[in-house]
């Protein structure tokens, strides 16, 4: 019984159980049925939660599974958005720009990975470096307001960002573009697919070694695995997922701006992940949703100090629910259902 819930606490390399698959099935049905009852404004709000949850996933995958905190996942998020925007506006077509919005950040992460993973940089410097990189990109983008900063026909526009980013076209029929509800379906499909994909990745030999690195990197090395290769691959992959998030963000809002790289955005991702719980992949998705809705609710209540409130929420979570919301709930449910046995007991 216990292990049925382990996926919602601290997943290991074991195959997810029946409860997890049922959860996926139900969640998918619900998510795809929601447009029947929600209006377009509500769909728009929910879409961006899914889009940003991809960014949270990219971080928690790296942090919760491999033990690397990449503070600056926004570097790849912003890069994905800008690559899509600039390429789509130049070429008119959006299919290739969409793919580049994933691949360019992935390649950029791989490049950084070569220096940072193979350069034997310690974990704490790694976190700081990623943050520095995203802040540099933020600063660089803000400095592009002059007329000379043009890529093809597109002005980068400095801190005003690039408006009018084209909506996604149907690849086989470019005259049809995705409308709000289509973007909703696409974001929903992507979050489900990426979540399931990353979860199942853990059951492969590659993923099981990643979990091993999280548990004890020295032991992984002593068994003969080159931990750096695995970290490098995981970092590149997470860069790709963050890039996908940024691309979808650009499509969702028809807009990109330097804030995508900014400190505020970077900090928000951490809050989503910590509140939801980094050890599970579902936690950060939930965390993103809660914080996003909390933020906009606070806005409508006329609370001026939204950042302050978010800060308090973060502190409360760090102190009260060390593992985050989802793992804490998971443990609670598991305890209600069965004796003293703990996670991962069976199999």
């Amino acid at each position: 019984m216990q292990r049925l819930f382990s996926d919602f606490r601290r997943p290991s390399g074991q195959r997810p159980g029946a409860i997890w698959w049922s959860f996926i099935a139900v969640a998918t049905v619900v998510v795809f049925a929601l447009p029947q009852v929600l209006d377009l404004a509500q769909l728009l709000d929910l879409s961006v939660v899914f889009v940003l949850a991809l960014l949270a996933l990219s971080m928690s995958f790296l942090w919760g599974y491999v033990g690397i905190l990449s503070f600056g996942q926004t570097a790849f998020f912003g890069l994905g958005g800008y690559v899509y925007a600039v390429a789509a506006m130049n070429w008119g077509d959006t299919t290739l720009p969409f793919l580049l919005g994933i691949l360019v950040p992935l390649a950029f992460a791989a490049l950084l990975g070569v220096f940072m993973v193979y350069g034997k940089i310690s974990d704490i410097y790694f976190s700081v470096m990623t943050l520095v990189i995203t802040l540099i990109l933020n600063k660089a983008m803000r400095a592009t307001s002059g007329d000379q900063y043009v890529i093809g026909d597109v002005r980068l526009n400095g801190q005003n960002g690039i408006p009018g980013v084209p909506p996604l076209q149907v690849p086989w029929n470019p005259t049809v573009t995705l409308f709000i509800d289509h973007v909703y379906y696409l974001s929903a499909a992507l979050i489900v697919l990426v979540y399931v994909g990353l979860r199942l990745l853990l059951t492969t030999s590659f993923g099981r070694v990643l979990v091993g690195i999280r548990e004890n990197e020295r032991r992984i090395e002593l068994l003969g695995y080159d931990a750096r290769r695995y970290k490098f691959a995981a970092f590149a992959l997470s860069g790709g997922v963050a890039g996908l998030s940024g691309t979808m963000f650009a499509i969702w809002g028809n807009f990109v701006a330097p804030e995508m790289f900014g400190l505020g955005q970077a900090a928000e991702v951490i809050i989503w992940v910590i509140v939801g719980g980094k050890s599970t992949l579902i936690g950060p998705i939930v965390g993103t949703g809660i914080i996003q809705y909390l933020t906009s609710w606070l806005g409508t209540q006329g609370v001026g100090q939204v950042t302050l409130v978010l800060g308090v929420v973060l502190v409360v979570f760090v102190l009260l629910f060390k593992e985050g919301l989802v793992p804490t709930l998971g443990s609670l449910i598991a305890r209600l259902f069965g004796g003293r046995r703990k996670q991962g007991e069976a199999e």
């Binding site: 290991s12 099981r208 979990v211 091993g212 004890n216 002593l222 068994l223 991962g344 199999e347």
Partner: peptide
């Protein structure tokens, strides 16, 4: 002891 504490004994052996 230098093992994978958060994993089952079998998973420990499997990784080896």
């Amino acid at each position: 002891p230098d093992v994978f504490d958060g994993l089952s004994a079998r998973e420990n052996l499997w990784l080896a």
